[in-house]
Design a protein around this nucleic acid. Structure first.
Lengths: 231, 231
DNA sequence: GTCTATATAATGATAGAC
DNA sequence: GTCTATCATTATATAGAC
């Protein structure tokens, strides 16, 4: 809940510019977004944008800092919120612009977005390392770090692929209906065993064999030989 | 570093330009990649790039078409390959540039990439609708389409977040070692039940309640929400 | 604080020489 | 086929007026 969101319309020009930049960066990427587009979206002149933020890089860093600060409140809830209906309602409408921005920044190469990702992995790993709440099983893995990374990647991947998921599902996943449908689908994926125990065991064995015998010989004797030849 | 190399080889200049463009588009995005950068990477002049492909949009469409054609051979194997060690080896070294390109194009907004995504969802959905191979359980979901979408999003998300996963895991996930570690982690995630049956049932109930009473005011009252009795 | 005007650089695209 | 100019447009950035 936390009404900390952008409450009203009478924000300072600087804040409106920052919000516009956040949206333009998210929509067109760090390279595609322009001062002109941002100024127009914010309803100010190009000069004012640069007066407040200096260079494009600085503007981007301001967005990063804002996003970092905003997302910080959210990250801790993501894990504990499972099974709490209130969490769904909150997660669906809090700070959408920031999430969109970070999803794009993650691909466009932002230090702040990378840090959010790393912090999420740390938090998740810590969560599974510490004593778990009743009802939550400890993951049966020997690589908790990798397990946490995969879990975070799955979660963040949904944000990054938001556009395509929304198209396929027929509802914007940043909207209550779409988010609900996606969450149900994800829950089904996680709740169900895709493989029978027998096949799962076979796959495990195959991976183990692949690991020991495959290419492991010498850490990196040759460079990346694995190139592919185009057709 | 320096990978990328269609090192001179006997490729035609046009093919070398296309490969360079594929890589530059993947690395810098559709807006960030420039004719000059592509020309330099291909070892040709800027004029030759435009002589062969005309406009930037046409060059991009050529990359899309090439990627679409290349990925077509791969998509069918992705599902059936589970548990097959040979699949791992193949998937790890086949068509890396195309996968990187598509991962980026998916975020930058390419029709071809969107189509790849949609086709993967279709293929996956068909896979689960048709009779399943022995050892593979049918997913316990009432929304096979959403289930397939979630599964594809998880898979593709790993490609899109490749850079961050690699950093966190300490190994390039497009490299045998990194890909293996990621795959093992994903397998652990899918193979294990994160929630106890009791908590899972509670989460289901919470979602159901949220769905009916929440906000939607149910634009579509009977959209197949119903009645999956939990395990 | 906010805007207009201008300088500078880079980019997509064209034309023509070899 | 391949390259070297060159143009027109657009972007970032600066300077200064109100």
């Amino acid at each position: 809940m936390t009404e900390t969101g952008p409450p009203a319309e009478d924000l300072t020009a600087r804040a409106r510019i920052r919000d516009a930049a956040l949206e333009m960066f998210a929509e067109h990427g760090m390279k595609g977004a322009t001062f002109r587009g941002i100024a127009e979206a914010a309803g100010v002149s190009v000069g004012l944008v640069q007066h407040h933020f200096g260079s494009k890089q600085e503007l981007r860093e301001a967005c990063d800092a804002y996003a970092l600060d905003t997302i910080h409140r959210l990250s801790a809830e993501k894990i504990d919120g499972i099974g709490d209906p209130g969490f769904l309602a909150r997660a669906m409408r809090i700070d959408l612009p920031v999430r969109r921005y970070l999803a794009r920044a993650l691909v466009d190469g932002s230090p702040a977005a990378a840090r959010v990702f790393d912090d999420l992995v740390d938090t998740t790993e810590t969560y599974f390392t510490a004593p778990l709440p009743p009802g939550v099983n400890a993951p049966a893995t020997t690589d908790v770090h990798g397990y946490a990374a995969a879990l975070v990647a799955i979660t963040i991947g949904m944000e990054v692929l938001h556009e395509h998921l929304s198209r396929v599902l027929g509802a914007d996943t940043f909207t209550p209906e779409g988010a609900l449908r996606l969450r149900r689908a994800l829950f089904d994926v996680f709740d169900d065993r895709l493989l029978s125990p027998e096949l799962a065991a076979r796959a495990r064995a195959a991976m183990r064999e692949y690991e020991s015998g495959g290419f492991g010989r010498t850490a990196r004797a040759g460079d990346g030989a694995p190139t592919e030849e185009g057709p």
